[in-house]
Simulated assay, not measured.
Amino acid sequence: MKKTLLYLTCVLAVVFSACDNMSTKTEATHNEASEATADTAVAFENENSPDSAADGSIVDVDASGDADWNNVDMNLPNVDWPEFKGSDVEVRGNNRYSVYSVGEDVLFDTDKAEIRKGAEENLRKISSSIAQRHKDGQVRVYGYTDAQGSAGYNKDLAEKRAEAVKNWLQKNGNIAASRISVHPVGEAKPTASNETAKGRQQNRRVEIVVRNS
């Protein structure tokens, strides 16, 4: 009888221990799954957030919370505006947005963020066009680089250059500071291959995007 009770006691102890281990494992598994789900959500949010520094995408809302910027297509068709005939400015647009694109070699010296004197005529034409065609539309200045050098350096250079263009437009183009924002993209959104000198030159650019008011 004593042996039977001892045997039953051992069996129960083993069963309770197994249940406890299973509960512990289940809880740990649940926690891991929850953490994985949370991490996945964060990764998904970062991947899809247009404001993500990692992918350099367009910010989807402006300071007023307007989400229209999320629908900007930077690859709009070219437009032929007479004010830019013979200039170094390429203009693309539709009935909602206009994109003024200027090469880095036009605006800046290599690895510099100070606007060249020779570039000011192009910026004057852009600011005059904005005043004529867009009135009070919001203005965003995007800075792009090629992929040479580190991503961090390129992002920093893109920001300094975009900031320099913003300051010029504000000071000399009579565009209110409240209308202009800076969006450094760096190397994240190439328009051409970084494997060739010609492609890298195309990637080094500043694009001024204006929303029709």
Rank of each mutant, 00 (worst) to 15 (best):
K3M: 05
V11Q: 03
V11A: 02
V15K: 04
S23F: 11
K25G: 08
A28C: 11
T29A: 12
T29L: 14
H30I: 10
H30C: 09
A41K: 07
V42Y: 05
A43Q: 10
E45H: 14
P50N: 09
S57D: 09
V61H: 10
A63T: 13
N70Y: 10
N71H: 13
D73E: 14
N75I: 13
P77D: 06
P82I: 13
G86H: 07
G93Q: 13
G93C: 12
N94R: 12
Y97A: 12
S98H: 13
Y100W: 10
E104T: 03
V106Q: 00
L107H: 00
T110A: 15
R116C: 07
G118W: 01
E121Y: 07
N122S: 15
L123D: 00
K125H: 03
S127P: 15
S128G: 08
A131T: 13
Q132F: 05
D136G: 11
G137V: 03
G137E: 07
Q138S: 14
V141G: 01
Y142C: 07
G143R: 02
G143Y: 01
Y144I: 00
T145G: 03
G149C: 03
S150N: 03
S150A: 05
Y153F: 13
D156S: 13
R161L: 06
V165K: 00
N167Q: 12
N174V: 04
S178Y: 05
E187N: 05
A188M: 02
K189L: 08
K189N: 10
A192N: 00
A192M: 00
R200M: 02
Q201W: 02
R205K: 05
R205N: 02
V210W: 03
